[in-house]
Design a protein around this nucleic acid. Sequence first.
DNA 1: CAGTGGTCTAGACCACAAA
DNA 2: TTGTGGTCTAGACCACTGG
Lengths: 236, 236
Amino acid sequence: MEVKYLSIYNDIMDSIENKIIKPGEKLPSENELMQKYDVSRDTVRKALDLLEGNGYIHKIKGKGSFVLDIAKLDFPITGIITFKELSEKMGVSSKTIVHELDLIKPDKFLVKKLELSKEDLIWRVIRAREIDDKRIILDKDYFNNRYVPSLTKKVCESSIYEYLERDLGLTIGFAKKEITVQQVSNEDKEYLDLEDYNMVVVVKSYTYLDDMSLFQYTESRHRPDKFRFIDFARRK
Amino acid sequence: MEVKYLSIYNDIMDSIENKIIKPGEKLPSENELMQKYDVSRDTVRKALDLLEGNGYIHKIKGKGSFVLDIAKLDFPITGIITFKELSEKMGVSSKTIVHELDLIKPDKFLVKKLELSKEDLIWRVIRAREIDDKRIILDKDYFNNRYVPSLTKKVCESSIYEYLERDLGLTIGFAKKEITVQQVSNEDKEYLDLEDYNMVVVVKSYTYLDDMSLFQYTESRHRPDKFRFIDFARRK
DNA sequence: CAGTGGTCTAGACCACAAA
DNA sequence: TTGTGGTCTAGACCACTGG
């Protein structure tokens, strides 16, 4: 809370999520917000720009800033969010089953994906995600050993990202994700409750640290009926 | 180019896309850019923030701004982009076949989707999109008649958005999109070259004008092997 | 230490919307 | 005409990086 515009952002975001300001209603003007928070207009505007970028409000010149109702009510893969954060947010029972956890010599495929040099080793983690007693998601994670020296079954069962950020002090910078649909593999059949589905939704992620080093490649394979992706877009 | 930070944004973006500044290289510092463009630091920063948000660069405190190579090289559905813009950008031969174009009284489903009142009529447009001689995408568009008074087959065959923005003077504000996977419908079978695929990727879009009025609902149904979605995300 | 990006301020002028 | 958000300026102090 030391950064002013972030605390203003959070304050207004809470008001919106708790329906203190309702969808369609107008926020106080930038002038009024300056007085309310006792900051300069630029600081208010930074907070409002963040809210607008994340789909909470829409600003109209000459009119004001208005609350939208199409924000974070849905399944969010937009942004970088972990399975644990997600299941907690959605409030559903969930379980993680670790099938593989080992430090391996990468094959050509991984050398290319993770831009590795010859000496690098990588952690391979294969986990099935269970929601409402159905195995719905198969996560195949690959971490560069250079940035992740050790990894335990316990960590993999809760949240790897929490471990990386809190214990290892790594800072995630950005990620590129790609969504496609593929035929099911034998691995999918073995680890997932696929019923009669013969295709899976595959989300490939390349995750970079704050210093721009690529440290993770992930393939997240979803049963198609349980996959949903929400995007909020603005016209450039 | 009347807005300074936008022209700086475009100038640097061009340098990146034309590889005048290569991936991994450092941009001039904000101080140097101030001098180069003869603007204040805040104006430089606005341009750089835009570049960062769109995945062109990454800024590191104390170090500088660095060019990424993971930007707009791929199939972009992120952002609001039309089929025409897309096929032109990808440089592939494409064709649009208009199957239906009529002004109808909405059913309950549409009344709800488009938040209509009793008197509203809507334009229904059903189009198949052909890429490399295969009918790959089925677009079902619904426009509120209040904002789109007339619509012709000719317009539907080229670009509806171009018509809306240039001829009708409408300004698109933002859109919410949802991606799911569904079983194929009879309509899909009739209008698409599905081969043996029994599922389609469905992209539902709700598009709003700049004054926040909802004017369009679209279902875009894609053959799964031809669907690809790229997302660039930053850790909040 | 000097250079970098991150935050914040106070003030200015503009374009747009509503009364 | 008044109030709104959009752009731009000039200056300040901070935290972080690297030599």
